[in-house]
Amino acid sequence: MQVTTKNDRSLWEVIGDYFRANSIWMKWYCTGCGAIEMPPTMTSRFDMEQLGMGPMATPRQADVLLITGYLSTKTLRRVIYSYEQMQDPKYVVGFGSCTLNGGIYYDSYATINQLDQYLPVDLYIAGCMPRPEAIMNSFATLIEMIKKGEARGWKHYQENYDWYKANQMDSLGEVIIHDEFHE
């Protein structure tokens, strides 16, 4: 697994990162219970829009993929599919302990235990589930990371594509399912 640490951005990338940091649109894929923490984060109590963030309908338009909770293998296939449809640069935020280490589903036959084996996670939020304050705090961190050019998960995914694919294949067999319901 190749790890990139050097941060040599061109001027255009620095400018682009400024825009990207201040306008983060999320593809908010409701995988688990954490999705319920998002409405208060978006509405008037915490008002995510003041950070320039907002929900978007499709992965093509989105910048950040939020994995809000436990991920079953079936869902993981769809999440990977959605992630690969997103446009570079793109970021992944894992919510709660489920994405970190499986959480309370650590021994389930149907849920994965560690998200960053399959997708390049830029930021984890601890908690089960994280409260809106924690979410807002993490978004502020994400913005700082993007501004400094540290949120390079998407590049990491490109550079170590084979490693990620191998992990995905080990756990899932195949990402894009062919069966009677999808033909």
Binding site: I15, F19, R20, E49, Q50, D63, Q87
Partner: peptide, 28 residues
């Protein structure tokens, strides 16, 4: 609109940032 909904709302130049950000991304 944000004030109508009792929110703080984005910066006034947020729409510019959004558009330029879209231009700065890769595309298909």
């Amino acid at each position: 609109t944000a004030r109508l909904q009792k929110r703080r709302g984005p910066k006034w130049y947020q729409q510019f940032i959004d558009i330029f950000k879209a231009f700065s991304k890769s595309s298909i």
